[in-house]
């Protein structure tokens, strides 16, 4: 196996281990840390796919912004001092059964397909991605910026204190 392959498998293992931490642990802070680790691994997989700009964006957006916002939301809402009530094993088992069923069906389709791997190997540079964004996909690009502004203002309005107890405060 080449060095590239070893690094790719290591990054994929980091992503999957982080994902298992993100759903497996009980403490919500450990879940968020596992989520950040999983996103670092996913960014590494993107690097090995030749999508370096997407990898940088994933680290900035998910590890940098989304994970921090989640920590803030947990600190504002999660009652960490309350005792943990275990969930019934029937519900956990049903969730695992559904996930395994869907994953098995997808695996069946994936393993049965005949992939033409001779086209594999072409990558796009950040310059090509940027040119696409400002020519063919400029409308989607602008709509995303409008969507982010609307979402940011909406988030502030929804989370703001209302009523007598919070009038004039944020």
């Amino acid at each position: 196996m080449t060095a590239h392959g070893v690094v790719t498998v290591a990054m994929a293992a980091v992503a999957v281990a982080g994902a298992l931490m993100a759903v497996g642990f009980r403490n919500i802070f450990h879940n968020i840390l596992g989520f950040a680790l999983a996103m670092l691994g996913v960014a590494g997989v993107f690097l090995s796919l030749g999508a370096d700009f997407v990898a940088a964006v994933f680290i900035l957006v998910y590890v940098g912004a989304v994970a921090i916002a989640m920590v803030y939301a947990v600190m504002l809402s999660q009652p960490l001092d309350q005792p943990f009530v275990p969930r019934s094993t029937a519900k956990i088992g049903a969730a695992a059964a559904v996930a395994l069923l869907v994953a098995g069906a997808l695996w069946h389709v994936m393993a049965g397909a005949a992939w033409h791997e001779e086209a594999w190997g072409q990558t796009a540079t950040a310059a090509q991605v940027g040119r696409r964004f400002l020519t063919d996909y400029v409308l989607a690009f602008e709509l995303i910026s409008v969507l982010l502004v609307v979402a940011m203002m909406g988030a502030v309005m929804v989370a703001r204190r209302t009523g007598a107890e919070g009038r004039g405060r944020w």
Partner: peptide, 23 residues
């Protein structure tokens, strides 16, 4: 890594996420 390797990683992430969403 071949195309099936990448698709397997994606499949694992999707399956773990689906389990977490329900459980």
């Amino acid at each position: 890594m071949s195309i099936t390797g990448y698709l397997t990683v994606a499949l694992l992430l999707f399956g773990i996420g689906l389990y977490g969403l329900i459980a």
